[in-house]
């Protein structure tokens, strides 16, 4: 039994995740994600009323660092792995503005 996710949804998620998908992958992922989601749906059977969500494995707080400068990289070190650079900048296709 398979609980398919529609191709539109798969494509939308692919866009959000910035992964180009061909039609065959959309079909396959629709099927596989559907199966997995059907599986994880079993959680709905559990009553979690009033249960606090647990985002961290061990709950600690106020771990702070002093505002004291440490070591930075040189521009060459920073850009050593860059697939493309323009002088001391990382280089990308033309974009508009800042984020």
């Amino acid at each position: 039994m398979s609980n398919k996710i529609t191709p539109e949804v798969v494509r939308h998620i692919g866009k959000l995740a910035r992964i180009e998908l061909d039609d065959q992958q959309v079909e396959m992922l629709g099927r596989q994600l559907g199966d997995i989601l059907r599986y994880v749906d079993k959680l709905q059977a559990l009553n979690t009323d009033g249960v606090a969500p647990m985002a961290h494995a061990v709950e600690i707080h106020n771990v702070l660092a002093d505002d004291a400068p440490g070591q930075s990289l040189t521009a060459d070190e920073a850009l050593a792995n860059a697939p493309a650079r323009d002088n001391d900048f990382f280089m990308v296709p033309k974009v508009l503005g800042d984020s």
């Binding site: 660092a65 505002d67 004291a68 400068p69 440490g70 070591q71 930075s72 990289l73 040189t74 521009a75 920073a78 850009l79 002088n87 001391d88 900048f89 990382f90």
Partner: peptide
């Protein structure tokens, strides 16, 4: 106006040469 960045200890400073106040 802190000395260093929010989550690393690179300098928080305007006007330095590009990609010099950076770390992993």
């Amino acid at each position: 106006a802190t000395e260093t960045k929010m989550f690393c200890r690179c300098r928080n400073r305007f006007g330095d040469p590009p990609n010099t106040n950076v770390c992993p």
